[in-house]
Write a protein that binds this DNA or RNA. Structure first.
Length: 511
RNA sequence: GGCGGCGUAGCUCAGUUGGUCAGAGCACACGGCUCAUAAUCGUGUUGUCGCGGGUUCGAGUCCCGCCGCCGCUACCA
C-alpha cells in the first residue's frame, strides 16, 4: 500500500478564515480523498500557526491570555473546515506540546550541526508585520503594509546560516526538477537562490509568545521558523523515528505563491541543516482574484466597498449554494498553479450548467424513467454498452489528473462521462420504448451514475453519497477502492431506485 | 533598475519541440426531443492569436523593438 502525505500551510490565527484559505484547503482535501479512494494510506494535515507578537497583542487587547486567545481563534479554522467537509486526519497547532518538543529538538540539531549562531541585528521594525524592513521598502518612514511608523530596533539574535546552503540548494533544485511545481514557481525560487542568500534571524527576545530556544533562555523562535516545522511534528519527529521514516520525505506541501520563499528556500535548507531530506514535493497554487464587481452584501464586511477575497467567508457561500457546490467551483474553475477569477456569477454559471443541468438532471431523468419503465427497480448494465468505454476513459483521465494535482481536469473528464450518458439516453430514447426493452440502456445509465459517484466523491462527498444511495446501493462510494470499484458492470441490478428532490435546483443568474 | 511571467472568440481558458493551430466550455442562434431541474441531444456563428518589424517555403508557436498588466527582488501566514 502506498503512502500519501499532504499538507496545507498552517494558517495564522489572527486571520479570519476566508475563501483564500478555503481554496487551498479544499484542494488539498480533494486530493487527499482521491488518494484514500485509490487505497493509499493517507495523512492529510492542516492546522494553525499561533505564535508571534501580533497574536500576543490581540490577546492582550481582548483581555485574555495568548493561549486562551488562540484556543478561540484556532477553533474558527477547525469550524470552517468542518463546514466545508474537510477530511483532515490531524489538526496541528503550534501551541501543541508535541510541537514545542519537535521544534526544540529540530532546531537544537541544527544548532549542534553548527548552522545557527548569535549575531546582532539592526533594522527598522514594524510591530504589526512582525517584521523588519529595509529603508527603500518603506513608504516614507512608515510600514508599506500597515502605514504605521516603524521603529529602529537592535536585537541580539540567533541567525540561521542560510548562506551556507546556496550551493546545496541549487544542486537540490537541479537534481529534483519536479520537486517544486509548477515550473514557473520553481524558477522563481531558484533565481532567488542564485541571487545570493543571506543569513536569517530566527529568534526574538522582544516577546515571550513563542517556542523557547532550548540553549538560551529568554529567546524564542521567530514565528515563521517554528511554523514550518509543523510538518515534522505531525509525523512524530523526535519521538517516533519509524513513523518519520514512513512519511518523510515523500510529502506534498500545497502552498500559496506568497509563501514560496519560506517553503522552497528556507525549509529545504532547514531540513538539510538538520540532517534530513528536504520535502519531496511542493506544489504552489495561485490566488483567487476578485474582480471589480461587488458581491452580495452579506459577504462583504462593508457593503459598499470593493470586495476582497479575504472578506468572503466560506460559510457565506456554503449557506447560499451548498457545501458541494462551493467545493466544486473551487476545484473546477481555477487550475492549481495559476491565478483565477472568483465571482458569484462564475459560481452560478458553473452551478447551473454542470451541477443542475448536466449531473443533477441526469440523476433525475434516469430515476424517472426507471420508475415508469422498470417499476423503480434498477436493471443491471449492459456489458456491451458504448458507455463502458466512456467510463474507462473518464477513470483513466481522472486518475492521471489527480496525480498531477489537476482537480479541474479530473472533474472535466468526469463531466465528459456525464455528457456521454445524456447523449446515450437521447440516442436510445428509453422513455418511448416498451417496458422490458429498456433494461440495457437504463442499467447502463445507472452504472454511469454509480461510477460518477465514485469519481466525484473526492470533490463532492455528500453528493456522491446521495447518488449512491438513490440508485439503491448501501454504504458510501468512498468505501470502494478504485480502480476495481469503477470497472464497468459493478451495478448489480435489482435495486430500488428513488428519485428524490433535485440535487441542485437551478439558480437565478443574480444572487 | 534587475530577473521572470502574461496579453488567443462576448466570458473563462487550451494551444508540446514552428507546418489542418485557429480550438474547448459557457453564452448565443437554429433544429430535434419532451424522460428530466424550460433540463437534454444535434448543428452552427463569432477572433487582424496586444502592436510593429524580422527569420523561414511556412509563426499564437522563434528573434528584435514597442504598448499594457502582473509577480519576485529577503526575513508581509
Amino acid at each position: 500500500m502506498d503512502r500519501f502525505y499532504i499538507t496545507t500551510p498552517i494558517f495564522y490565527v489572527n486571520d479570519v478564515p476566508h475563501l483564500g484559505h478555503a481554496y487551498c484547503t479544499v484542494n488539498a482535501d480533494a486530493i487527499a480523498r482521491w488518494h484514500r479512494l485509490i487505497g493509499d494510506s493517507t495523512l492529510f494535515l492542516t492546522g494553525t500557526d499561533e505564535h508571534g507578537a501580533k497574536v500576543a497583542e490581540a490577546a492582550e487587547a481582548n483581555g485574555v491570555t495568548p493561549r486562551e486567545w488562540t484556543d478561540r481563534t484556532s477553533a474558527r479554522f477547525a469550524e470552517a473546515w468542518r463546514g466545508l467537509a474537510i477530511s483532515n486526519d490531524d489538526f496541528i497547532r503550534t501551541t501543541d506540546e508535541r510541537h514545542y518538543a519537535t521544534v526544540q529538538q529540530f532546531l537544537q540539531k541544527i544548532y549542534d550541526n553548527g548552522f545557527i549562531a548569535k549575531d546582532t541585528y539592526r533594522g527598522l521594525y514594524c510591530v504589526s508585520c512582525e517584521d523588519y524592513y529595509t529603508a527603500d521598502q518603506l513608504d516614507g518612514d512608515k510600514c508599506p503594509v500597515h502605514g504605521r511608523p516603524v521603529t529602529e530596533m537592535e536585537e541580539d539574535n540567533y541567525f540561521f546560516r542560510l548562506s551556507a546552503f546556496e550551493d546545496r540548494l541549487i544542486e537540490w533544485f537541479e537534481k529534483n526538477p519536479d520537486a517544486i511545481r509548477p515550473a514557473s514557481k520553481r524558477n522563481e525560487a531558484l533565481s532567488f537562490i542564485k541571487g545570493g542568500l543571506k543569513d536569517v534571524s530566527i529568534t526574538r527576545t522582544s516577546l515571550s509568545w513563542g517556542v523557547p530556544v532550548p540553549w538560551d533562555e529568554g529567546h524564542v523562535f521567530y514565528v515563521w521558523y517554528d511554523a514550518l516545522i509543523n510538518y515534522l511534528t505531525a509525523i512524530g519527529y523526535g519521538e517516533d523515528a519509524e513513523k518519520v521514516a514512513a512519511w518523510w520525505p515523500n510529502v506534498h506541501h500545497l502552498i500559496g505563491k506568497e509563501i514560496i520563499r519560506f517553503h522552497c528556500v528556507w525549509w529545504p535548507a532547514m531540513c538539510m541543516a538538520a540532517g534530513i531530506e528536504p520535502p519531496a514535493n511542493i506544489f504552489v497554487h495561485g490566488w483567487l482574484l476578485v474582480g471589480g464587481q461587488k458581491l452580495s452584501k452579506s459577504m462583504a464586511a462593508d457593503g459598499d466597498a470593493p470586495v476582497k477575497l479575504t472578506d468572503i467567508t466560506p460559510a457565506s457561500l456554503t449557506e447560499e449554494y451548498g457545501v458541494d457546490a462551493v467545493r466544486y467551483h473551487l476545484l473546477r474553475d481555477t487550475p492549481l498553479g495559476t491565478d483565477g477569477e472568483f465571482s458569484i456569477e462564475g459560481l452560478i454559471a458553473r452551478y447551473n450548467s454542470d451541477l443542475a443541468n448536466n449531473l443533477g438532471n441526469l440523476v433525475a431523468r434516469v430515476a424517472t424513467v426507471v420508475g415508469s419503465k422498470c417499476d423503480g427497480v434498477g436493471p443491471a448494465p449492459s456489458p456491451t454498452s458504448p458507455l463502458a468505454d466512456s467510463a474507462s476513459t473518464a477513470l483513466a483521465a481522472a486518475a492521471d489528473a489527480w496525480e498531477r494535482f489537476a482537480p479541474h481536469e479530473a472533474l472535466e473528464a468526469t463531466w465528459r462521462l456525464i455528457g456521454a450518458a445524456n447523449a446515450e439516453l437521447e440516442a436510445t430514447e428509453p422513455w418511448k420504448a416498451e417496458p422490458g426493452t429498456v433494461d440495457d440502456v437504463l442499467g447502463s445509465a445507472l452504472e454511469v451514475l454509480r461510477i460518477v459517484s465514485l469519481l466525484i466523491s473526492p470533490a463532492m462527498p455528500a453528493t456522491a453519497d446521495e447518488i449512491w444511495s438513490r440508485i439503491g446501493l448501501a454504504g458510501s462510494p468512498s468505501d470502494h477502492p478504485l480502480p476495481a470499484a469503477a470497472a464497468w458492470g459493478g451495478y448489480p441490478g435489482g435495486l430500488s431506485v428513488t428519485k428524490g428532490d433535485p440535487l441542485f435546483p437551478r439558480r437565478k443568474a443574480t444572487a
